[in-house]
Simulated assay, not measured.
Amino acid sequence: MPRASRVMPMLSVADMAASRRFYETILGGRLAYAFPPEGEPVFLTLSFGETEIGLGVLEEKGVHGRPLRPASGHRVELCINVDDVDTTLSALGAPIVMSAIDQPWGERAAYVEDPDGNLIMLVAPIG
């Protein structure tokens, strides 16, 4: 049976500069790849430890020929582990969907929206 060797979420973004600032500058992602390599990228990947996220400029349809956004709602949310949820929440300046709350599974969690309205769950261990 074939086995996957890597899974990387890729988000379609309307404003690459705003999204890059959110994920790279504020959340600390490290640029791993950019296309084109010179000038303003239309696609890039950012590393967070051993994981990566891809950001691609939103077009009407992707290379697969299908629309890149659902008609309503959202299809994916990202869970990002941070050192301190409350400090990160105030530093982001992003719209808060759910304030920081201690969860019964042992993490403090909050939800924000990124510049494109994608839901981001920020989590850190309690204590």
Results as ranks from 00 to 15, higher is better:
V76Y: 05
A14Y: 02
E40I: 07
A110K: 03
E50L: 14
G62A: 09
F22D: 07
A100F: 08
G65F: 12
A34T: 08
L78I: 06
A71R: 15
P104I: 05
L27V: 11
R108A: 04
A71L: 14
G65Y: 14
R108W: 05
G28V: 11
A100R: 09
P104C: 01
L119K: 09
D15A: 02
E38D: 10
S19M: 04
P9S: 01
F48I: 07
F35Y: 15
L78F: 09
A18P: 04
P95R: 15
S19Y: 05
V82N: 09
L58D: 11
G106Y: 13
S47N: 11
S12N: 08
L55Q: 03
L78W: 06
M98T: 10
P125N: 07
E24W: 02
I26M: 12
T51W: 02
G117M: 13
E40L: 10
A4N: 04
F48Q: 14
S12F: 06
Y111T: 00
T87K: 12
D86F: 06
G28F: 14
V76W: 04
E38Q: 06
A34M: 07
I80C: 10
P95H: 09
Q103C: 08
K61E: 03
D83A: 15
G93D: 01
V85F: 07
F43K: 00
S5K: 10
S47W: 14
Y111F: 11
I80T: 05
S72W: 10
E59K: 12
V85P: 03
M8V: 13
A32H: 12
D15N: 15
A100G: 12
G49Q: 13
G127Y: 08
S5N: 11
G56C: 04
I101T: 13
S90I: 03
V82S: 03
I101A: 06
L89Y: 04
G49L: 15
D84A: 14
P2R: 05
